[in-house]
Design a binder for these strands. Structure first.
Ligand SMILES: [Mn+2]
Ligand SMILES: [Mn+2]
Ligand SMILES: [Zn+2]
Ligand SMILES: [Zn+2]
Lengths: 144, 144
DNA sequence: TTGTAAATGCAAATAATTTGCAATTAGGAG
DNA sequence: CTCCTAATTGCAAATTATTTGCATTTACAA
């Protein structure tokens, strides 16, 4: 389980200051561990801890956290969603379409694609693989 | 090879009128067959055919074409990209990061995920799999 | 304790996409 | 062919997520 202490340490190690705003953001992110959440929703939570916190500060910090590899970012419809990175090795996610809960899918099928990609004379550099569905809790509430 | 005639037919079959604007858009899309292209770039091409065509009309038509399953839509950074659907069966794409060229990857590894997803107690409903890289032409121009 | 670069808040700018509305038009009915 | 009407379009304005400029504040190393 990832700890707030570890997160703060990693931020400092990367040369960033530990402002109360930043700490509040980290606290909220860890409170939503394994859940994708939007900048706006992060704001709603952080202002409970640090009332004057501005959305600009949220965005600037999310960018930093992404840069130092502490955050996953994904764009579903038009708004970006963020989720703390808790594992170190390459993996993918299944994301609940209702609550944003995410679980690590510790498998990547990239090798299966390599021959097909070569056939098309492409050089493969990146890939985006995301699974979507309903988590244990949310599937209960689904209309039958 | 997909033909303009077929595209027009499908549009009519779905109850939409064949306006010159719509025809121009289809023509441009077919000219970029197998390439993802943005609304703005579609506009640049269409105004050569129909000079007064408005970006709003582009967006409205792209939405219609997507609705009737004639267009793939993907969102890379902040702008949506579109590509005519030319095959009927489920597949994925490799997309050139430079020119937008796309090739069909006629393979889906979804089954490989199903056990892992079940383990996490999720119901799997959707998935997004996209490969990115450089196409045959563009890889030549790459800095060494 | 102090100096300074980093960080923040606020307001304004961006940029892609959407919407409201009045004017135009495609194409079926007569 | 002519007429009618719902569909479509163009234009301007709204929306919305995100970014930027800038003056002010602050963390923290020395
Ligand atoms: Mn992860
Ligand atoms: Mn396709
Ligand atoms: Zn859920
Ligand atoms: Zn290319």
């Amino acid at each position: 389980m990832i700890s707030l202490k570890d997160l703060k340490k990693k931020v400092k190690e990367n040369g960033y200051k530990l402002t109360p705003q930043r700490k509040a953001i980290l606290k909220v992110l860890i409170g939503h561990n394994k859940h994708f959440i939007s900048a706006e929703d992060i704001l709603k939570e952080t202002i409970k801890i640090y009332p004057n916190l501005n959305i600009t500060t949220i965005y600037r910090n999310l960018e930093i956290l992404e840069d130092i590899n502490m955050l996953h970012k994904t764009k579903d419809n038009n708004t970006a969603l963020y989720c703390l990175i808790c594992e170190e090795s390459h993996h993918h996610h299944i994301i609940c379409k209702i609550c944003g809960k995410t679980e690590i899918i510790d498998f990547c099928p990239l090798k299966k694609f390599s021959d097909l990609v070569k056939e098309k004379n492409f050089i493969l550099t990146d890939h985006k693989i995301e699974l979507y569905g309903y988590c244990e809790d949310c599937k209960k509430d689904l209309n039958p």
